[in-house]
């Protein structure tokens, strides 16, 4: 099998991320939910920056907004910014050690959370707790596993 464009592999993985992010969790687990959508998006940007970029991030953000019932454009803004940062440095990220990748992914997901909370705070719903950074930590811890998994999928389907 030659290198294929196989866009559907990308779409299916992003759809799976959307579903995972909407999966009901018990009350006590709410803070431990990784941010699936930014994670999967970041992987595809590192892997295929020419095909997955700002447009994908924005559309994905709008879908996430609709799914979560948040202000339309909220997640779109946050995901676009995060995707932009990743697009600037993806070449360096490919060379990073696992420790560096952990820190970087933590910073990016935290940035995503921060933007979401800034906008939410501006338009009414506020919270003073720093607990919202918890998912960033969980996401960073999960990153290597997700990276390997998605790389396996990408190579398996020969997506270039």
């Amino acid at each position: 099998m030659g290198p294929s464009r196989a866009n559907w592999v990308i779409y299916v993985s992003l759809l799976a991320a959307l579903m995972l992010s909407a999966l009901p969790l018990p009350e006590s687990m709410q803070w431990w939910r990784p941010e699936w959508v930014p994670l999967v998006l970041l992987y595809w940007i590192v892997a295929l920056p020419t095909r997955v970029g700002l447009g994908t991030a924005w559309v994905l953000g709008i879908l996430l907004d609709v799914l979560e019932g948040s202000l339309l454009g909220l997640n779109a803004l946050a995901l676009t910014v995060v995707a932009y940062v990743m697009l600037l440095v993806y070449q360096r990220v490919r060379m990073f050690s696992w420790l560096q990748q952990w820190l970087f992914v933590f910073a990016l997901v935290a940035l995503y959370q921060l933007i979401v909370h800034w906008v939410k705070g501006t338009f009414g719903v506020t919270s003073l707790s720093l607990m919202f950074l918890m998912p960033a930590l969980v996401s960073a811890v999960l990153w290597p596993a997700l990276f390997m998994l998605l790389r396996g999928v990408r190579r398996g389907f020969n997506v270039l």
Partner: peptide, 13 residues
């Protein structure tokens, strides 16, 4: 493109 999309998002919000 990032600037355009960000402004678009803010307008939408």
């Amino acid at each position: 493109r990032m600037l355009v999309l960000a402004v678009l998002s803010l307008l939408l919000i």
